Computed example of a mutant assay.
Amino acid sequence: MTLMKAAVVPEANAPWELRDVPMPETGPHQVLVKIHASGICYTDSLLARDILSYRPFPLITGHEGVGEVVAVGEGVTSREVGDRVGLPITQKPCGRCAFCRERHAPSFVTANNCVAPVLTGVNVDGAQAEYIAADADGTILLPDGISYEFAAPTVCAGYTVWAALRRADAKPGARVAVLGIGGVGHLGVQFAKAAGYHVIAITHSPEKHDLARELGADDVVSDGAGLKAAGGADVLLHTAPTHAPAIDALQGLRPWGKIVLMGISADDGFPLPALTLTSHSYQVIGSAHNGPEYLTEALKIVARGDVKPMIEVFPKEKVGDAYQKLLDGELRFRAVVQY
């Protein structure tokens, strides 16, 4: 039996441990990927703390893995040895249920409506490991010119915010506000700027105001009143970990504006002011990756240098430290582990 190194979560709320585990074998329609870099997402911490539970511990998480195909299984025609690929969270739908018979593109919507999806790092082993075997159609080709370290956070965080911006379908020259300058929000500012919008960053942290401008924000405000005073926004990208700032920011949303929710908040309730929504014809949009074409677009934008993820890189031997920094809120802004 061949062994490899992997970051193992032995039990709920336990530190991550680098262990020797069996290397996966490549089955039909699968590829074996040598992982070069893997990002740590906030969702990984929810799994590691058993807040989200899909299978028993021990776990190998990781849905921001990128690397090189080193073997292909029987029946694989879309990938070759040497391909550079990313491994987003929705690896494979079941293909049999009523939802799958409608032939939807893989996305979080598929993950939540297919009766038996394969979800990388969620209900099967993930990419916090030296190797992973995955369905070939659950990988995405990386463009030339993008480093593994920049590609890793783009596979989830960048994908999330770019898909949300595309789903907002804002008109050219629109005013886009990004709420929260963190792991997703710092990418949101850059993607919105790269798309040619007037960008307003909303952050209650004074120490992030200069950073937001460096990332491309045209205006930086602290709250909804500040957003209104700055001229308001046509689109509000809600990337903050709590909902109260988003409700406050509605006072700066312009008539017929759109608020786009993404990710998972610590507080699930979202108390919308009905009169405000009705009076201004606001739209509230949920966004969940929305299809692999948006990940392809996001990767190309990063590859050409218009967006640069802010990352902290860790060797695999320090994966436990990387996870702890995420829990402690000390990352600026994404942890990437090299394998």
Rank of each mutant, 00 (worst) to 15 (best):
M1F: 03
T2A: 12
V8H: 02
P10S: 08
E11A: 15
E17Q: 15
E17R: 14
R19F: 04
V21A: 08
P22S: 09
V33C: 02
H36T: 01
A37H: 05
A48D: 02
D50V: 00
L52G: 00
R55D: 04
V72K: 03
D83F: 02
Q91W: 00
A98C: 02
H104K: 14
T110C: 11
T110H: 07
N112Y: 13
N112C: 12
N112F: 15
A116N: 14
T120S: 12
Q128V: 03
I132V: 15
A133E: 01
D135R: 02
D135H: 15
D137P: 01
G138T: 06
T139N: 06
L142W: 07
D144F: 09
I146T: 08
Y159N: 13
T160S: 15
W162H: 15
W162L: 15
D169G: 07
A170C: 11
R175Y: 02
V176S: 05
G180A: 10
G182N: 09
G183M: 08
A192N: 03
A192F: 03
K193Y: 01
I200M: 05
A201Y: 05
A201D: 04
H204Q: 10
E207W: 05
E207Y: 07
H209D: 00
D218S: 14
D218M: 07
V220Y: 05
S222P: 00
G224V: 10
A225V: 03
G226F: 06
K228P: 00
K228T: 01
A230F: 12
D234I: 08
D234G: 07
H238P: 00
P241I: 08
A244V: 04
A244G: 06
Q251V: 15
R254I: 00
R254D: 08
R254P: 02
F270H: 12
F270C: 00
L275A: 14
T276Y: 01
S279C: 10
S281I: 01
S281H: 14
N290I: 03
G291S: 07
G291A: 11
E293T: 13
L295M: 09
E297Q: 15
A303N: 08
P309I: 09
E312H: 08
V313A: 13
A335M: 08
Q338I: 13
